[in-house]
Amino acid sequence: MSSVELLFRIVIGTLIAAVGGIVIGLAAKGVDRKLHARMQGRVGPPLRQPFYDVLKLFAKDNTVPDNAVGWMFNAAPVICLAGAITLLLYIPFGSILPVLGGHGDLILLLYLLIIPGLAMVVGGFSSGSPYATVGAQREMVTMIGYELPLATAVIAIAAKMNELFPAEPAFALSTIAAHPLWGEMGLLGIIGFAILAMIMVIVTPAELSKIPFDTPEAETELAGGLMVEYSGRNLGLFYLADGVKTVVMGAIIVALFIPHNLSPVFTGIAQGSIGAYMVDFGFFLVKLAAVVFFAVTVLRTAVARLKIAQVVTLYWIPLTMIALLGLILMMWDSVPMLHIAPWLGGA
């Protein structure tokens, strides 16, 4: 691939990823809000409400407080959205391979995941409000909190990949997506893998600042925290970034844990054809919706907001321990007695 062709792919791919990510993200938010409302016994807003919200926000005045650091305050939402869209370039969608698939792996993804959160922290600190300052401090602490179980989960998967497929790069998402681990391991491994999936689901609401981990925004305590001084276009950009981040987190979980595709099931569709891509993409959206439903909607419907000290304690002690248990179970899976395949009559 020549560098011109690569550049062309990046430009077109970024455009498609940005538009697609934003549209799917807002749609996911709409579904989330509707289901959340139904579970609370409310009617809820129409599914396209997030789109109306964005339109409204972009039509409103963009206020910058007098004591804010103007350029930083205005740059933060752009960086946040750009960071979230960059993440989309590394994640496979169904059988559509990522634009920059060969140029980065899970480790890069972990670092990139910090950028939107960091942009929010910078925006919060630069807005000159005590609420935003407290919110920004909490966001940093939350990020430190959930990195540990998140990294444990990623390392466990990569280690297993390295053990099973030593020829391929262990951290590459394409390797992980190509070999769903469920069928490759014994009973212990499957239990460990399921535990790690649960850890990822619990990390998601913290990444997205959703209840029970929405302490940085905490509407009733900090009046929006990080976001308190943001309005108009800037707030709209953060809103879009939130939608894109929802897609990113959902897509990462789908890629790591349920990368299965539907197109091989339909024998009538040729592999690699447009039809197969469409089927896989549709199936991907269903999986994404399911992940968002469990990781965001159900969780925020079922529990109260935690305090920042409780969030950190929860992530560092119980969840990291559980993640380590998952890791250990996956490592122990090499014990041949516990392989599930012979029990099922397979090889």
């Binding site: 609370q40 009733t220 079922a302 907001r305």
Partner: peptide
Amino acid sequence: AAHEIGFDTLLHWTWK
């Protein structure tokens, strides 16, 4: 009280 701790589900049930 439920709303203050971010538990809106309980808020809606109670107010129903």
